[in-house]
Amino acid sequence: MILPKWARSSAWIERWPSEPEAPGSNPGGPALSLKKVLKGACKQSLNEMMDLKIISYSVSIAVSLIISFYFIFGYSKLKSTTFITGFAAFLLIALGLSLNFYNLSFIGYLFEAAGFFLSSLSHAKTVRRYLVLGIVPDAIGQTLAFFFSLYAGLETVLFYSRSGKKINLITGLGFMLISVSIFLQLIIYLIPNDVQLIVQLVGYSLLISALVR
């Protein structure tokens, strides 16, 4: 075999390229392409990932793809827009999930968000119905209340670590329990729930302790 000029030195023999070279590169090296960059990023990402993470993402992608193709199968049979929307939604979700293998999780989340948004469009009618009933504004209020009470609780507990006053810990826990009670109310909406009421009672009772001294 006749070696090219640059490869005649023994130092270069080691790096005999196994792939086509980029034209005009000096010294010669393998040509880069987006596919190769992604492949490299994927390999690096896979090395960094835990086995559990790989399994979890692989299963999630497989499930999303199966659902997506089941939707398109349904569309071919029934010609309903619900199915074509579902197909696009789960394909976007699968694409978003697969971007995690390329260290592009941020863009992946955007794809996933787009997919879930598309999927939620099918629920729009139900949401409208709930809007009329005034449940959604209620839920928004509860969600805000949940976050702010949780925030207040965390702030107060963190303040306890500086002040060392037990009362801060108690009231902080009170705020947190209130947020838990609101959360329970949110997830089991309209259903009277004793647990939620008890948690709420305990939470507010703890807040009362702030008035004791």
């Binding site: 659902i67 089941y70 349904g74 049979k77 029934l78 309903s80 827009t81 619900t82 199915f83 579902g86 999927s119 099918s122 629920h123 009618k125 139900t126």
Partner: peptide, 14 residues
């Protein structure tokens, strides 16, 4: 078959 699949995902068929 397909409506039960869609309903399981919380979707209503249009």
């Amino acid at each position: 078959k397909f409506s039960s699949f869609a309903e399981n995902l919380g979707l209503e068929i249009d």
